[in-house]
């Protein structure tokens, strides 16, 4: 079966309140299950909220945490992507996302690129992830890249070469600037450009789950969307409002896109690696 009903949870988590956020996850999952979804994707740091600052250490969860058991249980009924502060056995804290299915953690992605500029402060509080891996999900071979990871195309290249058909991108994007030009923040328009470009360039689905709500005055703009491998958006949530966005994805579309545009077939990994190595060795010209 190549068709799957999936859902993106455009929610407004409470900053630093795990208990309330787990309840919000359960409620969202019930709605998604009721509407027939087999996969529900939550935004970045969906269990904790985003601008945590010093709260970070108080809401960090080990992967063995009983609190996560409740989500594992839920994953018998629907596959879940959830965002959390993960505490490693060495007590390093990561901005992470889990893929949960049938009571198991099937995949862990630790955010590789931690923005620390402008309104962002992640490197002050968090450790950098160091892996980009695809994994087998029911909807197809998937990769999770969290928010800022997506602003470095190298991450998407690696995932693509590693077999990605579905790019899952949980995000907590605060709106900034651009209200001069139209009815969207400047960075929202930028996101809409890159999600479409990645879908088209890597002939994959892009599932972009962004949150809504306000934290200390910053506004998360929502606008979650599902982009088909053709680069066409097939579902888009409203800006600024909470919503469970439903979409049907069909991995046969990935095949069709790759028949039309055999970009992956023509990718030259050897050249890329050789030239990257040269630049690393010799510096830019």
């Amino acid at each position: 079966m190549s068709r799957h009903a999936i859902a993106l949870a455009q929610i407004n988590p409470t900053l630093g309140n795990l208990e309330r956020n787990v309840a919000l996850h359960q409620k969202s999952a019930e709605e998604a299950i009721g509407r027939g979804a087999s996969l529900l994707i939550f935004p970045e740091l969906s269990l904790t909220g985003y601008f945590l600052k010093d709260i970070v250490s108080s809401v960090a969860l080990a992967l063995t945490s009983p609190l996560l058991d409740r989500l594992r249980d839920l994953s018998h009924r629907i596959d879940l992507v959830v965002g959390l502060v993960e505490e490693s056995p060495e007590h390093l804290l990561y901005n992470a996302a889990l893929y949960l299915s049938k009571g198991e953690i099937r995949h862990l992605h630790r955010k590789v690129y931690l923005p620390t500029y402008g309104i962002f402060d992640e490197q002050r509080y968090l450790a950098e992830g160091s892996r980009i891996r695809t994994f087998r999900a029911a909807v197809g071979r998937s990769a999770i890249l969290i928010c800022e990871d997506m602003w470095h195309p190298s991450t998407v290249c690696v995932a693509s070469i590693d077999g990605m058909e579905i790019l899952i991108s949980p995000s907590a994007s605060p709106g900034r600037g651009g209200l001069e030009e139209g009815q969207a923040f400047a960075n929202a328009r930028a996101w809409e450009t890159i999600t479409r470009a990645y879908a088209q360039l890597f002939t994959c689905y892009v599932l972009y789950a962004n949150r809504v709500g306000y934290e200390d005055g910053a506004c998360f703009w929502g606008g979650s969307e599902v982009i088909a491998p053709s680069g066409e958006p097939i579902a888009k949530a409203e800006y600024l409002s909470e919503q469970i966005l439903m979409a049907e994805i069909d991995t046969a579309e990935v095949r069709r896109a790759r028949m039309i545009n055999p970009l992956l077939r023509d990718e030259r990994l050897d050249i890329t690696l050789r030239e990257m190595e040269r630049v690393r060795r010799e510096g830019p010209r």
Binding site: G175, L179, E180, E181, G182, Q183, G217, L240
Partner: peptide
């Protein structure tokens, strides 16, 4: 002056959302 123009309807929505959200959560 283009840099200072404003999409008023969107700004209005963000600001009234800001007030409702930040007031109620306290």
């Amino acid at each position: 002056m283009t840099g200072l123009s404003l999409h008023c309807e969107f700004a209005r929505k963000i600001l009234s959302g800001f007030i409702a959200n930040e007031v109620r959560k306290t």
